[in-house]
């Protein structure tokens, strides 16, 4: 089974976020949000938004901010 107890969308969001972590928060979050919009299937994005709404446990701050940027369009 999966090697991680972290949900796949959270794990992947963190993996994406860390690639942009050297940039200022807003710039990094925008890049992460663009990436998710371009490559993520909507149910993954919805799951991420739900995770953020539930407190965003174990989620990178850049990913949290990216989810907020995606929020209106993805909901």
């Amino acid at each position: 089974m999966s090697t991680s107890t972290v949900p796949p969308h959270v794990r992947l969001a963190n993996d994406v976020a860390v690639q942009f972590a050297h940039r200022p928060l807003e710039v990094a979050a925008a890049a992460v949000a663009t990436h998710m919009r371009d490559f993520w299937e909507p149910r993954m994005t919805r799951a991420l938004l739900a995770h953020v709404a539930a407190g965003g446990d174990a989620l990178d701050p850049v990913a949290v901010r990216a989810a907020q940027l995606l929020g209106p369009a993805a909901s």
């Binding site: 999966s2 090697t3 991680s4 992947l12 993996d15 994406v16 860390v18 690639q19 990436h35 490559f39």
Partner: peptide, 8 residues
């Protein structure tokens, strides 16, 4: 494992 490339 199910580790994977961050972008793809």
């Amino acid at each position: 494992t199910d580790n994977s490339d961050w972008a793809t």
